[in-house]
Amino acid sequence: MHSVILATAIRLLLPLMLLFSLFLLLRGHNEPGGGFVGGLVVAAAFALYTLAHGEKEGRRMLRVDPLRLVASGLLVALVSGLLPLLVGLPFLTALWSSVPAPVIGHAGTPLLFDLGVYLLVAGMSLLIIFTLMEE
């Protein structure tokens, strides 16, 4: 199945959707958004690309193995949970920086956790999508 319209549109849509997913990720700890939706948007972007160009091209476009994404996402989330242990607080306690950063507001370990979720969700969904689209 090859569609010229989809193939042309996705060239523009892919970067836009990736940017939008980052936007969702970065505002997630204060406002609607977050790692989960962000990850799903990434997955949707690559799924559209895969629909237009096939599963092999999709994998090539992603560059990394989706499993790697899953593993690194879990790792980042785990680290964000372990950081508070260094200052003697229980696992998963949120630590916030007191200085507001320009785009994201007060950063903290929840943002790191969200980043982990983002990678995990994107990786997991793409893993399933690629498996289902394999010929």
Binding site: D65, L67, R68, A71, S72, L74, L75, L78, L82, F91
Partner: peptide, 20 residues
């Protein structure tokens, strides 16, 4: 109390990273 959860989780992550 978190250790029985962290040990398998960390191992699973390490196992995923060392996939092959």
């Amino acid at each position: 109390l978190f250790l029985p959860l962290l040990i398998p989780l960390a191992t699973a992550i390490a196992g995923l990273l060392a996939w092959n």
